[in-house]
Design a protein around this nucleic acid. Sequence first.
DNA 1: CATGAATGAGCGTTCATTCAT
DNA 2: GATGAATGAACGCTCATTCAT
Lengths: 199, 199, 199, 199
Amino acid sequence: MHDDKTTRRAGRPRSAEKNDAILRAALDLLARQGYVRMTLDQVAAAAGVSKSTIHLRWKTKADLLTAALAAVRMAGAPPSSGDLRTDLLAILRDFARTVERVNGMALIGTCLAEEDHTPELLALLRERTVLPRRALLREVLERGREEGSVRADADLEAAVSALLGPFYADHLAGRGGRPGWAEQAVDLTLAALRPVGGR
Amino acid sequence: MHDDKTTRRAGRPRSAEKNDAILRAALDLLARQGYVRMTLDQVAAAAGVSKSTIHLRWKTKADLLTAALAAVRMAGAPPSSGDLRTDLLAILRDFARTVERVNGMALIGTCLAEEDHTPELLALLRERTVLPRRALLREVLERGREEGSVRADADLEAAVSALLGPFYADHLAGRGGRPGWAEQAVDLTLAALRPVGGR
Amino acid sequence: MHDDKTTRRAGRPRSAEKNDAILRAALDLLARQGYVRMTLDQVAAAAGVSKSTIHLRWKTKADLLTAALAAVRMAGAPPSSGDLRTDLLAILRDFARTVERVNGMALIGTCLAEEDHTPELLALLRERTVLPRRALLREVLERGREEGSVRADADLEAAVSALLGPFYADHLAGRGGRPGWAEQAVDLTLAALRPVGGR
Amino acid sequence: MHDDKTTRRAGRPRSAEKNDAILRAALDLLARQGYVRMTLDQVAAAAGVSKSTIHLRWKTKADLLTAALAAVRMAGAPPSSGDLRTDLLAILRDFARTVERVNGMALIGTCLAEEDHTPELLALLRERTVLPRRALLREVLERGREEGSVRADADLEAAVSALLGPFYADHLAGRGGRPGWAEQAVDLTLAALRPVGGR
DNA sequence: CATGAATGAGCGTTCATTCAT
DNA sequence: GATGAATGAACGCTCATTCAT
């Protein structure tokens, strides 16, 4: 009789490895194929489980993909090198690297395309990836404001959009991945935010 | 081989009205449903033709949607009020209005999502809508440079991305449609581009 | 230009043979397998068409089977040999023969079993086969009443149930197909309906 | 081999309560959903056990339902008020009440529909419910014959079918539950069985 | 013994595409 | 040219059954 701290559930426990494999495969295929084109057969094959195993855990395809997006977790604390520009650059570069690694633009595209049909996708993408990243940038900018290198009356949310926006605009223009984009975005934004007659 | 200017085909000519109706319906449905979810039956019904009529003109679904995107034409000359800020604002506002009218973010999303599978879509979207709009902005910025209100060494392409980018970033952050976004983007960009010591 | 009497519909006409083959196969399989066990694949295979052809004509499985039952048509005029007993016997024997030929008890069973789930089935079976047969019997009994061989105050609907009922009761008792059942039912019923002191 | 009266198995004995709960749930669901539509998940949920517990006792779905039908037990002794008509009526009314209470027509329908596929079902239904009821009616009729109120040469099995049959015929005609059906059936049958010149 | 996980086979339905009129 | 019929290949989902704890 084992009765440690955790109450033992009856029956065979649900495999955590399978859970992870399924969610990973689902997210990957979602980015590579889009919501509709991705099939549960593909997910099952990629995760090495049967289709029924997926349905045992998530009732519908939408549930699965919602869970897959919900499982995405964003980094942690903002960098703090002591230099405003350096910190912003670090965040933007990490952002670009992550987007490229997970085929993020296609994933963003899918969530946008499905907004009318499965609005949870975009909502989750926003909550799990977009807003946390923005919060990081905002924190760094707030530190800059305290230091005096950012104008006190600056709209920091607008500044965040100015930092991230060029990445999207460049991608749509076919200029994605261009070296120096992050520096340009940071320098342009900081130039605009510099206090009048400042430093 | 016909040597007229207009090559004449034998038999009953294909109805241009039907062509247009099909392409219009296809584009609309592409934006509202996405590539895969949109069906040819829906297009046929919306255009008031039979499904076979569509296949008679375009061999595959991808061909049809490529043609639908290729048929998109962008405005024309840049505004020229004499004031740099006013002109940029006019372009950005028209941009936002157009995107909202045609469910443009979903359309962009679809093209992004399909990039691996049907790359022509994103290429055409870029060519027909993104790049022409960017060219407009660039022209205005160049006029500003000539006038002296924009720094001579400014990277104008980066500036264009700084002008358009916040729109995308805001949308993804759930801040889309926020009033004043265009003013903020223009003011931020122009502040950064202002010649040193300049007005 | 052909314009006879019937307005010519555009496109390829829908094959009437396929229609019939599908309905026939559906009814047969419905009787042999029951509603749920019967599959559209089986119907398609038996009818020599693709599954899609079935869905082109009937939106759902329930629609198809409803149509299959609705297509069942019952005989015509009641026999009239001049002898009441003979006429009733002829109807009952034809009834039994038909039920056996089309696996009718299983079909009836399916409609009863599905009553909670697809009530149209039992309703159609009733309308197309049960009630017409009862009407026949009733007509003959009415002629008997006019002749004076059936009591004037007899409840003829109850008499009809007395004529048909033993068939069902016998089947359930495992005595189905017993020779002489029809004679027994008719004689018992007529004996009960004979006018007091009548012929 | 144990030589007790009750064979004792080794290990924890199977819970009799669970057995009963499962069989009761299975029978109820069989009547309400039909053989194929009813699922073992539903049975497990209704009985408050796991699906595996069911399979532990019965190898297949068919086995379970066979056992469920086999567990049905019919009343007991025939009523004996001293009056033939009263006794027959009592049996028929109890019959109708029982059928309605357990959704009996749907259950009968399922057994009929499954006859080709799982013939044990109809066989058991017959053995456990139909034949016992018929035996009751037959006993009462035999008493009537001894009393002289039923003709000596009457075919009592046919009479039983004449008593029960109208119930089925009425149900199929959409006249089920009609008040007075039992009286009509009894009176019609007794009238036909009355000895010639008898009381 | 009892449970919950895991699965293979299969179902109704959809859709881009091809065929016949 | 234009239509509607016909189809093969999937897809999401279900379920009786088997496996592991």
